[in-house]
Design a protein around this nucleic acid. Structure first.
Length: 534
RNA sequence: GCCCCCGUAGCUCAGUAGGAUAGAGCAACGGAUUCCUAAUCCGUAGGUCGCGCGUUCGAAUCGCGCCGGGGGUACCA
């Protein structure tokens, strides 16, 4: 248990005994926005007063009068506003936070292991028919960061990329490649990108012999595409625990078993020569075809099979990050899982669109014409750190304007550098010859406003991780780190670490080192580097 | 038509387990560096949190109804 949690446990114990509450009732302690509202505040008196029909401020007063605050490290407690209980905590408590960070280092903020659960996060899962686009880039940054944050929060989490290597699009890819190899027009419903030209060149360096089959060529091309996607993602700092191929399902006839399971619960019927899933009985807006008139399964059936396989492989929760063009998919997959008794198994996060801006104008992209900005190009243009940070600053569900000009600018205008610079700055201090050893400092001299403010923010790290993990929202961590950088920069401007009294100097070096540890770990959770020099 | 997302400062957006006087970056203006990297800091200015009603001691946050913008609505994946 960390010191922050320990303090709250003690506070809660006292408050519960005063109010006669049992242990199951949550008591909220929040850090007020304003300094004159104390270091921590609780609204428990307002909530309990309502239940009891008493006056909130009176109840708050009785809480304050009944607790021996001194033994809790609380210097002052008062009633405020409509009935808040605000408390001021002694600096000595904050010093223990710095101690804790220095002893735990990168492990600081690690949540306790959550038992009996495993979260499988599936993201990107782009078709093997071409390069990764900017929405995939966004999904990759977010998905990878969610996995890292979940693990930090104590959850067991694994990442997975689903490769649709068995659908008709692979054949279409093969046809497109063959057309390019022959120097013919690519079919209307084929793939028109430049990448298909190089696929043709790679697969047929000395031309065609006329016996090539579109299916086979498609498989070969898809294989090359997947290998390339993997390489690009790797350079982007995103690796998957597993690349799950749709063909694996077909090899084991899994979709057939899934159909039998659906039949067994009475969720399918025949109509117009096709087999339908009764989505409407399980929450979807319409029924869906799962076997076509030609007897071919639609994508839905293997997808259901794939989601069942996630559960069979031990996942207790599946999180899917889907692109904006797939959101009508959500209802049918939930319905299918409901039908099979897997309610609440799947969580879907829609990764919204990305608009690239250059010179204030939207960069025109067209999939049909093969004019796409790829993940690879984006990383070449702006670098991995900038790309990932830009994606992680914003809510996943918001449309994102990605300002390429700002992203390319290596200046103070670029927010990524602001956070990285705080880390670099600390490294600069700690690297100095006359910098004292941060690990043997007496911290009791840390009493300045900017010092305590900094520690208070460091204290919030674990809670930020928990919230970001539970909400699946990495942007909360990005915001936190930006604030931490600001607070550190303020501390730096107000006080000197080196060149003051030796004891104080060591204490400030310790505080700087603690800040560095949290910045480095936080950036790591975003997949952004924490440079020692810039 | 139906479904999903968004609407907060001039621009891009945070803020959503309901909390007290709504924040940041950029853009504008004015300051700070004999000293640990000024990729920084301080200050000024900038708001009917799309609109209305409701729930609540308390709403940017929850509910309902509108308005505006974007996306999706295949026996493709």
């Amino acid at each position: 248990m960390n010191n922050s949690t320990a303090l709250r446990t003690l506070l809660n114990h006292e408050v519960r005994s005063v109010l006669g509450l049992d242990e199951s009732l949550e008591i909220q302690w929040t850090v007020p926005k304003r300094k004159d509202q104390g270091d921590l505040s609780t609204n428990i008196a307002m909530i309990e007063a309502k239940k009891r029909g008493t006056i909130p401020r009176d109840l708050a007063s009785s809480i304050i009068e009944s607790i021996d605050w001194g033994k809790l490290n609380v210097e002052r407690a008062e009633v405020a506003g409509p009935g808040f209980v605000n408390i001021w905590i002694a600096p000595s408590y904050y010093h223990t936070i710095v101690d804790q960070i220095l002893s735990e280092k990168g492990n600081y903020g690690q949540g306790e292991a959550v038992p009996d659960q495993k979260i499988l996060v599936e993201f990107v899962s782009a078709n093997p028919t071409g390069p990764l686009n900017v929405v995939s880039a966004r999904a990759a940054a977010i998905g990878d960061s969610i996995v890292r944050i979940l693990r930090k929060a104590g959850f067991e989490a694994v990442s997975e990329f689903y490769v649709n290597d068995a659908g008709r699009q692979v054949r279409r890819l093969g046809e497109s490649v063959l057309a390019r190899a022959k120097g013919e027009e690519v079919p209307e419903d084929g793939y028109h990108g430049e990448d298909v030209v190089s696929l043709a060149e790679n697969l047929f360096p000395s031309g065609l012999n006329g016996s090539e089959l579109a299916e086979v060529v498609g498989e070969q091309a898809a294989h090359l595409n997947v290998a390339h996607q993997k390489k690009v993602l790797d350079e982007y700092g995103v690796s998957f625990d597993r690349w799950f191929h749709e063909s694996e399902l077909h090899r084991d006839d899994t979709p057939k078993h899934t159909l039998e399971q659906l039949s067994a619960v009475g969720a399918v019927y025949e109509k117009d020569g096709a087999t339908w899933f009764k989505g409407t009985e399980y929450g979807d807006v319409e029924d869906r075809v799962i076997i076509t008139q030609e007897g071919r399964p639609t994508y839905l059936l293997p997808d259901i099979a794939y989601h069942l396989s996630k559960a069979e492989r031990g996942a207790t929760t599946a999180i899917d990050l889907l692109g904006p063009d797939h959101h009508d998919y959500v209802g049918r997959m939930h319905a299918a899982l409901n039908a099979l008794g897997k309610e609440n198994f799947l969580e879907v996060i829609i990764v919204q669109q990305v608009h690239l801006l250059e010179g204030g104008e939207k960069v025109k992209m067209s999939k049909r014409a093969g004019k796409l900005v790829t993940l690879e190009e984006l990383v070449e243009e702006v670098g991995k750190d900038v790309a990932r940070y830009f994606f992680l600053q914003r809510r996943t569900s918001s449309h994102l304007d990605f300002d390429l000009d700002l992203a390319k600018e290596e200046s103070e205008r670029n927010p990524v550098f602001y956070v990285q610079y705080a880390h670099t700055r600390i490294c600069g201090i700690l690297r100095k010859e006359d910098c004292p050893d941060p690990y043997s400092a007496d911290l009791s001299t840390l009493i300045e406003l900017e010092e305590i403010e900094l520690i208070k923010h460091l204290e919030q790290f674990a809670e930020t991780i928990q919230r970001a993990a539970e909400a699946r929202e990495p942007q909360r961590l990005a915001s936190y780190l930006h604030d931490l950088a600001t607070i550190f920069h303020k501390f730096y401007s107000a006080h000197r670490v080196i060149g003051v009294d030796a004891g104080l100097s060591a204490a400030r070096a310790a505080l700087s080192e603690a800040s560095r540890i949290v910045l480095a770990e936080g950036l790591n959770l975003l997949g952004v580097s924490a440079p020692e020099k810039m």
